[in-house]
Amino acid sequence: MLFVGITGGVGAGKSEILNYLGRHHGTRVMLADEIAHELMEPGTECFEKLAELFRNEDIFQEDGHFDRKKLASVIFADEEKRNLLNGIVHPAVKEYVCEQVQAEREGGVRKLLVLEAALLIEEHYDEICDELWYIYTDREIRRERLKISRGYSDTKIDQIFDSQLSEDEYRKNCQLVINNDGRIEQTLAQIDKALRERHI
């Protein structure tokens, strides 16, 4: 089984690629954000730690869950708080991922397991992934996508871009670069070629 970590800047178009992999190659796709959300539900160890950390912030819904939009605004504007949150959530996500990888390897059925994570490199997933793949898209294309699809302002987009790795860092740390600047068919052809080369 090949375990691939997929990363790239926000707005790079990773979702469509992940959907394609999940549909066409018998692949299990894990999303670090979704895992983190599950681990941040009330009653979990992560939730208790974060509730204490952010007890003075207006980030809770009436039912006791985190208001994710408010939480995101707080951590994108404050690097120290972002680092504190990451220090709680990301080790828990990584532990869960390691358990799933071990289970899939022991199962011996799946040929390809994929993890998408924004902090794939920063959290040293190269230690457990067989390969890291970088989905590259031009910065201005990403900006326009985020304005259209999410309604983000330039200020918010700049905040997000500034919080992520540079293109050089992504390229330096990943074994494969997928260019997603053009038509989706061209991108998927690159994916298919990479999988053929890896006998998947």
Score class of each variant (00 low, 15 high):
residue 111 K to C: 14
residue 10 V to W: 00
residue 162 D to T: 13
residue 120 L to V: 05
residue 99 E to G: 11
residue 73 S to C: 11
residue 113 L to P: 07
residue 68 R to P: 00
residue 35 I to L: 13
residue 7 T to E: 02
residue 81 K to S: 03
residue 25 H to F: 12
residue 9 G to R: 02
residue 160 I to V: 11
residue 110 R to M: 14
residue 65 H to T: 14
residue 159 Q to I: 13
residue 103 A to H: 09
residue 197 E to H: 14
residue 194 A to L: 08
residue 184 I to T: 12
residue 65 H to M: 05
residue 122 E to R: 03
residue 75 I to F: 07
residue 123 E to D: 12
residue 175 Q to D: 09
residue 66 F to Q: 04
residue 98 C to A: 14
residue 50 L to C: 07
residue 169 E to F: 04
residue 133 W to R: 03
residue 90 H to I: 00
residue 174 C to K: 01
residue 149 S to E: 14
residue 127 E to V: 06
residue 71 L to I: 08
residue 182 G to C: 07
residue 135 I to M: 02
residue 48 E to S: 13
residue 194 A to P: 13
residue 52 E to V: 12
residue 88 I to P: 01
residue 129 C to I: 02
residue 108 G to M: 08
residue 29 V to D: 05
residue 35 I to P: 00
residue 29 V to A: 06
residue 123 E to G: 06
residue 30 M to A: 11
residue 127 E to Y: 04
residue 131 E to D: 05
residue 198 R to F: 08
residue 121 I to K: 01
residue 69 K to I: 09
residue 30 M to E: 07
residue 56 N to F: 11
residue 171 R to N: 11
residue 170 Y to D: 07
residue 30 M to G: 02
residue 46 C to M: 09
residue 135 I to V: 15
residue 1 M to C: 12
residue 13 G to R: 01
residue 48 E to I: 01
residue 125 Y to E: 03
residue 148 I to A: 07
residue 166 S to E: 12
residue 171 R to F: 10
residue 60 F to V: 11
residue 26 G to Y: 00
residue 13 G to D: 10
residue 152 Y to S: 02
residue 101 V to C: 03
residue 195 L to G: 08
residue 9 G to M: 01
residue 131 E to F: 06
residue 16 E to N: 09
residue 191 I to S: 08
residue 76 F to M: 11
residue 26 G to F: 06
residue 114 V to K: 04
residue 150 R to K: 13
residue 96 Y to I: 04
residue 108 G to H: 00
residue 11 G to P: 10
residue 65 H to C: 11
residue 144 E to G: 00
residue 56 N to Q: 15
residue 148 I to Q: 14
residue 30 M to T: 00
residue 162 D to F: 07
residue 142 R to T: 07
residue 14 K to Y: 02
residue 166 S to C: 08
residue 11 G to W: 01
residue 69 K to P: 00
residue 26 G to Q: 11
residue 177 V to P: 01
residue 27 T to F: 01
residue 114 V to Y: 09
residue 183 R to W: 07
residue 42 P to A: 04
residue 191 I to A: 09
residue 83 N to D: 14
residue 122 E to C: 09
residue 31 L to C: 10
residue 186 Q to G: 15
residue 109 V to N: 09
residue 193 K to N: 13
residue 107 G to T: 03
residue 149 S to D: 15
residue 175 Q to R: 12
residue 127 E to D: 14
residue 77 A to W: 13
residue 79 E to D: 15
residue 124 H to T: 07
residue 144 E to L: 03
residue 128 I to E: 09
residue 173 N to V: 04
residue 138 D to Q: 11
residue 142 R to L: 05
residue 137 T to H: 03
